[in-house]
Amino acid sequence: MRVTAETSGRMSVLVPLCVAQFTAADGALAKFKAAGPYSRENVVSEFVKSVASTNMDYAFAKACATGIEAELAKPATKT
């Protein structure tokens, strides 16, 4: 259980960093939007190799893809 909690805690910090890194990459969002739902993890892995010394694996790429989808689903806010 401790390992799961540590992994979950680390992911909660790393996923927003991954999302920011991914969205800053040229062409990443267009490729992500064009990809099918089952290949988005591969697109994330293509553009983001590591975040804060943590290498990208499938679980991390999937969590990051979910974070990107959540960001895309947010309504645009005007400031």
Rank of each mutant, 00 (worst) to 15 (best):
A59V: 12
V43A: 00
Y58H: 05
G27V: 10
R40A: 04
A61Y: 05
V51E: 00
K62L: 12
L17N: 13
D57A: 08
E6T: 14
V19R: 00
T66F: 13
F32N: 01
R2I: 15
F60E: 05
A65K: 01
E71Y: 08
L14G: 08
S53E: 11
G36K: 08
K49A: 14
N55P: 09
M56T: 14
L14T: 13
G67H: 06
M1E: 11
A28W: 00
V3G: 04
L29F: 00
K49I: 08
N55D: 13
V44C: 02
T66I: 09
N42K: 09
S12M: 09
S45H: 00
A70D: 10
A28F: 01
T54C: 07
K33M: 07
A70Q: 01
E71N: 09
S53Y: 07
V51F: 12
L72S: 07
C18M: 07
K33V: 10
T4D: 10
V3D: 10
S45E: 06
G36E: 08
C64F: 04
A25C: 15
K78M: 14
T4C: 14
F22G: 00
N55W: 12
F22N: 03
V44M: 05
P16W: 04
A63W: 02
Y58E: 07
E69S: 15
T4I: 14
S50M: 14
N42W: 05
S45P: 01
A24I: 03
E69Y: 09
D57M: 07
R2S: 15
A70I: 14
A65S: 14
K74A: 14
E46Q: 12
I68L: 11
L29Q: 03
K78D: 13
M1R: 04
V15A: 08
M56K: 06
T7G: 03
R40Y: 06
E71S: 14
A24S: 04
E6Y: 12
E6K: 13
F60H: 05
T79H: 15
T54I: 14
F47K: 00
E71M: 13
T77C: 09
A20C: 11
A73H: 07
